[in-house]
Every structure is written in structure tokens, then in C-alpha cells.
């Protein structure tokens, strides 16, 4: 039997939950080189990191692992969360071997109906990457959590 909206608890109250990291994230030069090569390019020789580290550094440098983050939304990571959107603004290029701090919060959660996924919650959260007190990049990600009825 398919889940209906009535079978599914309302989205959890997560707006405003702080996601600040407890320790800085450092882009290791050797890992950056391996990542670059895994995508088909050579690493830059000037100390800058692949810009995709805006995503990795914020995700790994925030307070929670992916599984813990999903749990904030009463969602089991094994049930397949999906990232659907991401917006990043860079103020300066990212650099290897530089400690970056992550600050952020959950912005919203919205219950929606999808023909493909049924009932789902769309969550937006914002993370900033800081070098000391200076923001080097700001990221807003949107994830979907497909919901199942309670059994």
C-alpha cells in the first residue's frame, strides 16, 4: 500500500539548527591531487585546490556526518537522501593545507508531493567556509528526503 500524507509524521522542527564545525577542515595537497586526477585533470601548481572542495570541505567540516545530518531530519541515510541543488559563491579560491572553519545552519524544510517520489521533504541549509574570520565561500544546498509511511 502506498503511503499517504496522513500516514507520515509532519516534518521535524529543524529550522535554525546550527551546523558549525568543531574543528577546521584542511584540504590535503595529496588528496587534492588524487581528486583532480580522478576527474581527468592535473592539480594546479599554485597551491589552489579544486573548487569542488567548497562542497567537500563544508560537508565534512560541519558538525555532523552525513548520517547524523540525515538523522536530524528523522531520516535514515540508507534510505537514499538526494541532493537536488547547490549554490556557491566564492570570495577567494580555496587553497590546500589551509585550515577552514565551517559555520552554518538549517534554513528550511518544506513538505512536498512528487509524482515520482511521493511525499518528500525538501531541506535547505547554508554553510560558510572561513579562513580565520574571513569567509572564502558560502554554500546553500538543497536535499530531498523521500518519506515512507510508518509501518
Amino acid at each position: 500500500m502506498n503511503a499517504t500524507q496522513d500516514d507520515i509524521p509532519p516534518p521535524p522542527e529543524v529550522r535554525g539548527i546550527v551546523l558549525d564545525g568543531a574543528e577546521p577542515y584542511v584540504i590535503k595537497a595529496d588528496e587534492n591531487a588524487a581528486l583532480c586526477r580522478s576527474t581527468g585533470i592535473e592539480p594546479a601548481g599554485d597551491g589552489t585546490a579544486h573548487p569542488i572542495y567548497h562542497f567537500i570541505a563544508t560537508q565534512l567540516g560541519m558538525k555532523h556526518s552525513v548520517a547524523e545530518f540525515c538523522a536530524l531530519f528523522d531520516f535514515d541515510v540508507a534510505d537514499g537522501p538526494m541532493i537536488v541543488g547547490s549554490i556557491v559563491t566564492f570570495h577567494t579560491p580555496l587553497r590546500v593545507e589551509t585550515p577552514y572553519w565551517v559555520r552554518g545552519e538549517i534554513l528550511s524544510i518544506t513538505r512536498k508531493q512528487s509524482r515520482k517520489l511521493g511525499t518528500m521533504d525538501v531541506a535547505d541549509y547554508r554553510l560558510a567556509l572561513l579562513d580565520g574570520e574571513t569567509s572564502v565561500a558560502e554554500v546553500t544546498n538543497s536535499w530531498i528526503f523521500p518519506r515512507k509511511a510508518r509501518t
Binding site: T39, G40, P51, I52, M82, G85, S86, V88, F90
Partner: peptide
């Protein structure tokens, strides 16, 4: 991002709005 680096080697990315 590699596409942007290939086409704009003397430029830096400022914003990127992505839909998966």
C-alpha cells in the same frame, strides 16, 4: 568545474548555481 577551468584558465569561479 573542469569545463570552466578549461575554457577560462585565467579566471576564477565566482558563483555556481547547480541543479542535479
Amino acid at each position: 568545474i573542469n569545463l570552466l577551468s578549461l575554457n577560462f584558465p585565467e579566471m576564477d569561479i565566482v558563483t555556481l548555481e547547480t541543479r542535479f
